[in-house]
Simulated assay, not measured.
Amino acid sequence: MHSNRHIKSKQRVADYGEVLTPPHIVAAMLDLVKQETERIDSRFLEPACGTGNFLVEVLRRKLQVVQRYYAKSQLDYERYAVLAVSSLYGIDILADNVEECRRRLYQTFDEAYTALFGAKTKAACRATVRYILSRNIVHGDALSLQTVGENPQPIIFSEWSLVSGSRLKRRDFAFHEMVQRASMRELPLFSDSGEEVFIPEPVKEYPPVHFLEIGEE
């Protein structure tokens, strides 16, 4: 049974079914897919992300892996820490949850980054992380597949991939098309491991940009 500290208000529970998952349950659930949480580029989507309890823990685990392999090179650490952040996606119907989720994810990155590199940390790297989080954590309704507001629009997610070393390639996908194609099992493609996957056409593609310049957008 959830304690009251995992409930913001009874009204929000009644209106939105909002109950925040406590940390020990988050950890236990993620341990079931432990190998994926430790892959830097494995993508996670939380369709009712709340304030980010699941996503923050995934990022914490990913950053531990980045530190283990790349702590001796600041540029390598920055590159793969940004990739770890870019692999996380969330949707929430409540605007304050979205802001808090972005803030917590940024803080998780920033604390790890600052602990390693101190005064050598770069404003451009922080700007990149903030921009990616603004794209990846969406104020929307995962049931209607649209944003929330006066003029709802289809939810668009950005896929980020490292190419040519330090460049990030961005492709935007309509969330409703991803859901439809997956449910209809169309466009059979295969990953490097041979696993069948289903990828719709992007609604927009961008030229690769150095990852430290992403925040300039």
Rank of each mutant, 00 (worst) to 15 (best):
A119M: 06
T128I: 05
Q180M: 11
G90K: 05
Q67Y: 01
T121P: 02
R167G: 03
Q67H: 04
R126V: 03
R79L: 15
N136I: 13
R170Q: 15
A95P: 10
Q107V: 11
Y89R: 07
Q74F: 00
T121A: 04
W160V: 14
C101F: 04
S73N: 09
R185S: 12
R171T: 01
Q107L: 14
E99Y: 11
T114W: 01
L105P: 06
A95V: 15
I137K: 01
S144F: 12
T147R: 00
R170W: 08
L143D: 09
S166N: 15
S164P: 02
Q107K: 15
K62S: 08
V163R: 13
K169N: 10
G90E: 14
D96S: 13
V138F: 10
R181A: 04
K72R: 05
R167C: 12
L168H: 02
R170C: 15
W160E: 15
K120N: 11
N151F: 07
S87D: 06
V179G: 09
L83T: 11
L59T: 09
K62V: 07
A123E: 15
Q107T: 13
T51S: 11
G149Q: 11
F117P: 08
S134T: 05
Y69C: 07
F173S: 08
S166L: 14
I156S: 05
C125L: 07
K122T: 02
R185L: 14
A182N: 12
I132S: 10
A95E: 15
A81K: 06
S73A: 01
C49M: 06
R181W: 03
I155E: 03
D172A: 10
N53I: 01
K169P: 05
E78D: 13
D172K: 02
G118I: 08
S164W: 13
V66G: 06
L143W: 11
K62W: 08
G149A: 09
V98I: 15
E111A: 08
G165K: 05
F173C: 07
Q180D: 13
T114L: 03
G140F: 14
G52Y: 00
F54K: 04
V85G: 01
K122L: 10
Y106N: 09
S73Y: 00
D110I: 11
T147Q: 03
L162G: 11
V85R: 02
A115R: 14
M178Y: 03
A112G: 02
Y106P: 06
N136A: 10
T108W: 00
Y113A: 08
L94R: 05
V163H: 09
I156E: 07
V65Q: 03
L75Y: 02
L133H: 08
V148T: 12
E99F: 13
A142M: 01
S183M: 13
G149S: 13
V56L: 01
S161P: 04
V82G: 03
Y89Q: 02
V65C: 02
R135I: 12
D141A: 01
L143M: 14
F173E: 06
E150S: 02
T51Y: 05
S144T: 15
E100W: 00
Y89W: 12
W160K: 07
V138T: 14
I137W: 09
L116M: 09
L88N: 05
A124Y: 00
G90A: 14
F117S: 10
E99T: 12
V58K: 06
R61L: 01
Q64T: 08
V82T: 08
V148C: 01
